[in-house]
Simulated scan of single mutants.
Amino acid sequence: MTIDRRSFMAASLVSAVTAGKVAAQTPPPFVAGGALPPGLPQPSETIDLWPRGAPGMRAKPPVEMVQERSTDALVTDRAVAGIVRPRMAVFRPDRPNGAAVLITPGGGYRWVVVDKEGYEMGRWLAARGFTAFVLFYRLPGDGWAAGPDVALADAQRATRLIRHRARDYAIDPERVSAMGFSAGGHVCADLATRFAASVYEGIDAADRLSAKPHSAAPIYPVVSMTAPDAHAGSREMLVGKTASPALEATHSPHLNVPANAPPFFLLHAEDDESVPVNNTLLLRAALKEKKVRVETHLFECGGHGFGLRKAIGKPVEVWPDLWRAWARTTGLAL
């Protein structure tokens, strides 16, 4: 991947000069009065994506709400909707390996899950030396001016901000990867195929940096916006029930793969009843056609939304180690 080094050095200089002047950041989503499981690290640091507020807000902005869906006091399963201040929750490793991973959790574009596909993966990555950034992206159904591109705008901006602040986190700006789950897998695949799309106006030095991830790992991803492969809920929230074929194509990553797309790691369970496995197969075929490097793992059982916790005790539980081994071959994990 090619990075504009002059732009990066200029951005790093600005970052160093202004490091002590950053405004207070929005806290990560939380449930008021909610108890957290003991012993699990929680993010103590967040990065707001848009210092002067997210662009394209409607006259009456949505209200951020966090719902706790777990009934087990030792396991949280929060979901956040109405995101007005998109931000990243940061998980810093004790010994950084120089690589960063932007995590985009799922939620069907109705909400963004916090724990199962966000914080749990952030902790796993940080324990292995990766600096993890869990992205709470805006949702297309909330009336933002960018419409179906609003989550992509946040993912592009997040990738650029990570590079902009690489020095602060001991990160190599060339080694900023992406990983996403379900609808967040769509965000990940969209970022890795439409990283060069102009979906927002730049606001600072960070926006002169590349939004192309080093590599991408869409896990059981939503890909196609066309029946019968489309996940109906995600499609409705992203492009609407009556979307034209042209609009469907614009937001189907397998139809937008450029020749210079980054390497992909794909993973899906064949018994997924929510997002058909053909979503991953369509993306794999498109990547192969463009001669883009891709590794694909299909599991007989696993269902949908297994993340880490629901994979335990099944063959699919090995998937994070498969990703890590593959990441070494790409130069992400040295």
Rank of each mutant, 00 (worst) to 15 (best):
R5T: 12
R6W: 00
F8I: 01
A11Q: 11
L13F: 12
A16R: 14
A16M: 13
P29C: 12
F30R: 14
L36E: 15
Q42H: 13
Q42I: 13
T46L: 06
I47C: 06
D48Q: 08
P51H: 06
G53V: 02
G53H: 09
P55N: 04
G56H: 00
A59W: 00
P62A: 03
M65R: 15
M65V: 14
E68D: 15
S70Q: 11
T71Y: 00
D72F: 00
R78E: 10
V80F: 01
A81V: 02
A81M: 11
A81F: 01
I83D: 02
V84F: 00
R85V: 15
M88E: 04
A89R: 00
V90Q: 03
P93C: 09
R95T: 13
N97Q: 04
G107Y: 09
R110W: 05
W111I: 07
V114Y: 12
K116V: 14
E117F: 09
Y119M: 10
W124M: 10
A127Q: 14
R128V: 10
F130S: 09
F130M: 12
D142R: 07
A146R: 06
P148M: 07
P148H: 07
D149I: 00
A151P: 07
A151M: 05
R157Q: 13
I162Y: 05
R163L: 03
H164L: 02
R165H: 14
R175W: 08
V176K: 05
G180L: 04
F181M: 06
D190G: 11
A192F: 01
Y200T: 03
D207L: 03
S210E: 03
P218R: 08
I219D: 01
M237T: 10
M237E: 15
M237A: 15
L247M: 14
V257R: 09
P263K: 09
F264D: 05
A269W: 02
E270A: 09
D271L: 03
E273L: 11
V275S: 05
L281Y: 02
R284W: 08
K288W: 08
K288T: 15
E289M: 13
V294H: 01
V294C: 12
T296G: 04
L298W: 03
L298K: 03
G305P: 11
I312E: 14
P315V: 01
V316L: 11
E317S: 14
R324F: 15
T329Q: 13
G331L: 03
A333K: 09
